[in-house]
Simulated assay, not measured.
Amino acid sequence: MDLSVLNDALQNLSSMAPEIWQACQETLVMLGVGLATAIFIGGPLGILLYLSQPGQLFAHKVINGVLSWLVNLVRSFPFIILMVSLVPLTRLIVGSTIGPVAASVPLSFAAIPYFARLVEQTLREIPRGVVEAAEAMGASPMQIICKVLINEARAGLISSLTILTISFLSYTAVAGVVGGGGIGDLAIRYGYYRFETDIMVAMVLLLVVIVQVIQFIGNRLAARLDKR
């Protein structure tokens, strides 16, 4: 590569440092809101999906069937279509359809069923005998959920959260295309519309680095919490 071209690219990136930093903050807002919603709503929903299955603590065929149908319904929507479908609700909640906070609404709706399924699948890996032993010792339902299920599945839950975080990092890039802001928006505006390839490449490399960091942290935490 011509050194002058590389030097020009570095100078261009340097001049855009404030915008890149703002894009990172916008991506962090979208991820933070979406992941928080997934943990506090999707997590309990996943536990309920698991416990309402036949043979489990709160087995109920109708409740399990309805919840599974709702989860599958939301997950069947491509994210870009879900964003458009939720425009009226987004405007009602935040008063706008533009910006990272507005983009967090459809991101949250997508994150809840996604994480719920991951939680359900993780809990299924717990040996049934562990729960039966807790029941035999007189543990209450809340004790079984908090001290048995979540405790036994904590490594798997961290891995599931890592998968969710990486997946939704790409969703924030999609949200940027339709006015959500963030790294994806910056890459599209400069790299695609203005043909500034160096910006596009830099944003892609930034996303790669972020994914690697998230995966590394997730793997380390999961390994530390794994009781096997």
Rank of each mutant, 00 (worst) to 15 (best):
G129W: 02
I183Y: 03
D198H: 13
A139S: 15
G99W: 10
A110R: 07
G184I: 02
A134E: 14
L89S: 02
F216D: 06
S160Y: 05
T165K: 07
S96F: 06
V178G: 03
V105Q: 08
R128S: 15
L221T: 04
I217D: 01
V5G: 13
T90E: 02
A153P: 11
Y50V: 11
T97N: 13
G65Q: 08
I217Y: 12
R224D: 10
E120N: 10
N12K: 14
Q212D: 08
V174Y: 13
P127W: 02
R224E: 07
G43P: 15
I112C: 11
I112W: 02
V33Q: 15
A111H: 05
Q121G: 00
A59D: 14
G156L: 13
V211I: 11
V177I: 12
R154H: 07
V33M: 09
P18M: 01
Y114T: 12
P44T: 07
E152Y: 12
Q53I: 04
L49Q: 10
V29Y: 08
L31F: 08
R228Y: 06
N64P: 00
P100V: 02
R75Y: 00
L28I: 11
G182I: 13
A222V: 06
T37Y: 14
Q121L: 07
G46D: 03
G156V: 13
G156H: 08
A155G: 15
L92K: 10
V29S: 08
L82D: 08
Q11F: 12
R228H: 13
L169K: 10
D2M: 05
C146Y: 03
Q22P: 01
V105C: 05
A59K: 12
A133G: 14
D2R: 11
R117Y: 00
A103H: 05
L149I: 06
A134L: 03
Q53N: 01
A222S: 15
G138L: 08
V119G: 03
N219F: 02
L10G: 12
G129M: 12
L51F: 01
L6V: 13
A116L: 01
G191Q: 02
I183A: 05
G218E: 14
G43Y: 03
V119M: 07
V101S: 07
G129H: 06
L28M: 15
P113R: 09
W69A: 13
L225S: 05
E152S: 14
I112A: 01
L3I: 13
V213K: 06
F115R: 01
L51G: 05
I183M: 08
V131R: 05
L89A: 11
I93P: 09
Q22K: 14
L35C: 15
A23P: 05
V101Q: 09
N72R: 13
L157H: 09
E120W: 03
L164V: 11
Q56A: 02
L28D: 09
A173V: 04
Q22T: 14
I63S: 07
G181W: 03
D2Y: 04
E19M: 07
L89Y: 03
L67P: 01
I145C: 00
L3G: 01
C24T: 11
R224G: 09
L31V: 04
A36K: 11
E19I: 04
G179Y: 07
